[in-house]
């Protein structure tokens, strides 16, 4: 066990625990956008920064990636931390002016938009947190989407911005997206995502449309479960 302090509170945690988890399990909230329990972490959004003091040196660290250390003193919302968080939020507000998630978070933390930043109109609600890419790769296993370019031009999408042949229409990317950037439209019989329209399968028992055919085919291929068995929705199984 490792002993340390967060916001004046003495805390014990297993070695290897991240500061973010240690704080949260002790009732100390640290805001995040990109850390999601289902996927590996990248430390991209920088909202979860905290100040870590070791001896005389105090530095800003990313709490979602920083493992706890013996004797370390963490402050989660001092002025230095808030200065970074404020800037990050103002930058994200300017990047994604349409995002209600970011607006709400800003309001919660008392951050106003920076009038000197001209709001972007072409970035949608995407904050490039990469949760979608990671879920597609690590959980689903198809890697249908990825980044393109770098810097200010960096964007999420399918290769060549064309219909992806490997996408199974599962919608995991849309579910995991913290800001609702990824558009998915599901009607009874079809689902539209990343420009492709997928045919939905209806349950052999109740008749309810429950999953894209491509997704069931992919699961069947990967697990060896025959399509016949997968043709029944989870409610009826």
């Amino acid at each position: 066990m490792v002993n340390f302090i967060i916001d004046g509170k003495k805390i014990k945690a297993e070695k290897g625990t991240m500061v973010l988890e240690a704080a949260r399990s002790n009732g100390i909230d640290i805001p995040t956008l990109c850390a999601h329990e289902s996927v590996s972490r990248s430390g991209a959004c920088r909202l979860c920064v905290v100040e870590a003091k070791k001896g005389k040196r105090a530095k800003i660290v990313t709490s979602c990636l920083y493992p706890v250390e013996e004797g370390i003193i963490i402050e989660t919302n001092n002025e230095r931390v808030m200065n970074v968080r404020r800037l990050v939020l103002q930058l994200l507000l300017a990047r994604c002016p349409e995002s209600d998630v970011i607006q709400d978070l800003a309001k919660q933390l008392g951050v106003d938009p920076q009038p000197r930043f001209t709001p972007d109109g072409d970035k949608g609600k995407c904050i490039l947190c990469r949760s979608c890419i990671r879920v597609c790769e690590e959980v689903v296993g198809v890697s249908a989407i990825g980044f393109s370019c770098r810097g200010a031009d960096k964007a999420i999408g399918t290769p060549f911005s064309e219909d992806s042949a490997v996408c199974i229409g599962c919608g995991a990317c849309a579910f995991i997206c913290p800001t609702g950037h990824i558009e998915m439209e599901t009607t009874e019989e079809t689902r539209k995502i990343w420009g492709r329209t997928f045919k939905m399968k209806s349950c052999a028992v109740c008749g309810r449309y429950f999953a894209p055919e491509d997704q069931l085919k992919y699961i069947s291929k990967k697990t060896g479960v025959p399509m016949k068995e997968l043709a029944v929705c989870t409610n009826c199984r």
Binding site: R95, L128, R150, G151
Partner: peptide, 10 residues
């Protein structure tokens, strides 16, 4: 900038 983190990219 590689574009990974918000402060640098934005």
């Amino acid at each position: 900038s590689c574009g990974k983190c918000t402060p640098c990219r934005e």
